[in-house]
Amino acid sequence: MSLLHVRSSADSKDDCERPISTIVFIIAMDAEALPILKRFNLAEDSTFFPGLPWIRYHGFYKDLQLNVIWPGKDLVLGVNNIGTIPAALVTCASVQALKPDLIINAGTAGGYMSKGANMEDVFLVSSVAFHHRRIPLPGRDLYGVGRRQSFSTPVLSAKLQLKDGVLSTGDSFDICPPDDAFIAANNANLVDMEGAAVAYVAGLLNIPSIFLKVVSNAVDGGKPSVEEFHQNLAAATSTLDRTVAEVVDFISGKSLSELSVSETFSLGSTRSS
């Protein structure tokens, strides 16, 4: 008997036609999550992941069950569990437990101003990849990059006037020259520390996933990124909160197919495999 329940393509086809009912938000930091928890009055369930620091917040809004999953804080150091490992683990555990219709990875990101990513811009990511998994061996180089398409939602993007972004993920806050080369090769204008890990798990378990990112610091702006990140975090998370509210309102009552089909697109051409 398999320990993992992977949704089949037949299940996915049926799920596309019925209204979305369960959403899992994967949010890396408490500062990003807190405004959203307050807005939707979500209740904490600290026993959902027994023995682990991960925390589920949950509640209902209109016809949607909302679940915000935060990886919590390191049990020794007391800092946010950020990075690809916590993101992948909580995503997998959450999907297995909650069997959501949709995963939304919402958070802040560094942006390349030279590529049109300015402070507090809001992006709906079209594709994600890694920039820190450098494996210069035949075939394994592409595995390392791990490029994946997000669930295509042209209707949502157009309605809320969200910018299109390409996200590159790594486990370090700073960007070294080899990272820069991979980010350029990925054609990315955004960088974060969890998106591609969430996409990897969502792809394995066949759950549609979208990535909502607000620029909190300019990677190429000439200022120290850490300092700029702290200065702009409150404004960026406020923008994220408002945008998440708009996204949830728009999704309510709609099916996945209604999000992915517009006048010029068909479900078959827009939905990622």
Score class of each variant (00 low, 15 high):
residue 156 L to V: 02
residue 163 K to P: 02
residue 194 E to Y: 13
residue 198 V to I: 11
residue 179 D to E: 06
residue 192 D to E: 15
residue 176 C to S: 15
residue 192 D to R: 06
residue 152 S to L: 10
residue 195 G to C: 08
residue 179 D to T: 06
residue 169 T to W: 06
residue 158 A to K: 01
residue 184 A to E: 15
residue 162 L to Q: 02
residue 189 N to S: 12
residue 177 P to F: 11
residue 196 A to L: 13
residue 186 N to Q: 07
residue 195 G to P: 04
residue 157 S to E: 12
residue 197 A to F: 05
residue 178 P to S: 09
residue 171 D to M: 09
residue 161 Q to P: 00
residue 164 D to M: 08
residue 178 P to W: 10
residue 162 L to V: 04
residue 188 A to M: 08
residue 201 V to I: 15
residue 193 M to N: 12
residue 177 P to Y: 10
residue 168 S to T: 14
residue 187 N to L: 15
residue 171 D to Y: 07
residue 188 A to I: 07
residue 205 L to C: 07
residue 187 N to A: 15
residue 159 K to S: 09
residue 158 A to V: 01
residue 180 D to Q: 11
residue 186 N to R: 06
residue 185 A to F: 13
residue 191 V to W: 01
residue 194 E to C: 09
residue 168 S to M: 12
residue 194 E to H: 07
residue 191 V to T: 15
residue 177 P to E: 14
residue 173 F to Y: 10
residue 165 G to C: 09
residue 175 I to W: 05
residue 160 L to R: 00
residue 185 A to P: 02
residue 153 T to R: 00
residue 175 I to R: 03
residue 170 G to T: 09
residue 160 L to A: 01
residue 164 D to N: 10
residue 186 N to F: 07
residue 163 K to W: 05
residue 176 C to D: 12
residue 191 V to N: 04
residue 179 D to F: 04
residue 181 A to E: 15
residue 157 S to C: 04
residue 194 E to Q: 11
residue 184 A to H: 14
residue 152 S to G: 15
residue 202 A to Q: 08
residue 157 S to I: 03
residue 202 A to V: 08
residue 185 A to T: 06
residue 204 L to G: 01
residue 159 K to E: 14
residue 190 L to K: 09
residue 174 D to W: 10
residue 159 K to N: 03
residue 170 G to Q: 08
residue 184 A to D: 15
residue 179 D to Q: 07
residue 199 A to F: 06
residue 190 L to A: 14
residue 186 N to G: 02
residue 197 A to V: 13
residue 159 K to W: 02
residue 178 P to L: 03
residue 154 P to A: 13
residue 171 D to H: 05
residue 188 A to P: 02
residue 203 G to P: 00
residue 198 V to F: 03
residue 178 P to M: 04
residue 163 K to Q: 10
residue 156 L to I: 00
residue 157 S to W: 00
